[in-house]
Simulated scan of single mutants.
Amino acid sequence: MSESREWMIQWLRDAHAMEEQAETMLSGQLSRIETYPELRERIRLHLEETRQQASRLKTCLDRIDEGSFTVKDAGGKLMALAQSISGVFAGDEVMKGSLASYTFEHMEIASYTILIAAANAEGETEIVQACEQNLREEEAMAEWLKSRLGQTTQTFLTRAAADSDSAKR
């Protein structure tokens, strides 16, 4: 097996672990943002996309007889769980979650861009197609988050001020 193919397979495994981590992270966020209905609905939709993305990558790994790397997947899920639990104690959890989500989307975008180039070099058109689909979904989520960061911030600040005023009374 060529070194470039080995790298492609490693990065494909990494991407699968990344999607497993994203699923855990999104599930944690979803359970705690009921007062932001638009954000909650978009995260719910992206959680479904994330599950499909992981499935696409698993199919690619299975097709080339490589499977996923379960230790890495488990480690990623554990890190995501710790991150989602730590947000419970932050008064500005929705803001920290928005920041983490926007950052994570860009890591995924970079990962898929790299994978597409590697799969193209190896002539793996099915992997290219799966990664291009995942990339489009990640770009759409990143753009959606970016377009709402100001609105989410304003809503958070308005609610925080109202909570502060009512606590003073």
Score class of each variant (00 low, 15 high):
Ser164Thr: 08
Glu137Trp: 00
Leu45Ile: 02
Glu23Gly: 13
Pro37Gly: 12
Thr70Ala: 06
Phe104Ile: 00
Leu12Trp: 03
Gly123Met: 04
Gln154Gly: 04
Tyr36Lys: 00
Ala118Thr: 04
Trp7His: 12
Phe69Ser: 08
Glu143Pro: 09
Thr113Lys: 04
Arg51Val: 15
Ile9Arg: 07
Glu126Thr: 05
Gln133Trp: 12
Trp7Phe: 12
Ala54Leu: 08
Leu81Gly: 01
Ser101Leu: 05
Leu47Asp: 07
Arg13Asp: 02
Ala82Arg: 14
Leu115Val: 05
Ala118Ile: 06
Leu30Ser: 04
Glu41Ala: 12
Met18Thr: 02
Arg13Glu: 02
Ala74Gly: 02
Thr70Ile: 08
Ala110Met: 13
Gln129Ser: 14
Arg44Ala: 15
Ser2Gln: 14
Lys168Ile: 03
Gln154Ser: 12
Met141Asp: 01
Gly123Lys: 06
Asp14Gln: 08
Asp14His: 14
Gln83Trp: 11
Arg51Glu: 09
Gln52His: 05
Arg51Asn: 04
Leu149Asp: 07
Glu93Phe: 12
Glu34Ala: 15
Gln21Ala: 13
Glu143Tyr: 07
Glu108Ile: 03
Leu78Trp: 05
Ile127Ala: 09
Ile43Ser: 01
Phe156Gln: 10
Leu12Ile: 04
Phe104Gln: 00
Met95Glu: 05
Ser111Val: 02
Asp14Lys: 03
Ser98Glu: 05
Lys58Asn: 06
Tyr36Ile: 08
Thr59Gln: 09
Ala80His: 05
Ala74Ile: 02
Phe89Met: 09
Leu145Lys: 02
Gln29Glu: 13
Lys96Met: 14
Glu6Ser: 06
Arg5Cys: 05
Ser31Gly: 11
Val94Phe: 00
Phe69Leu: 14
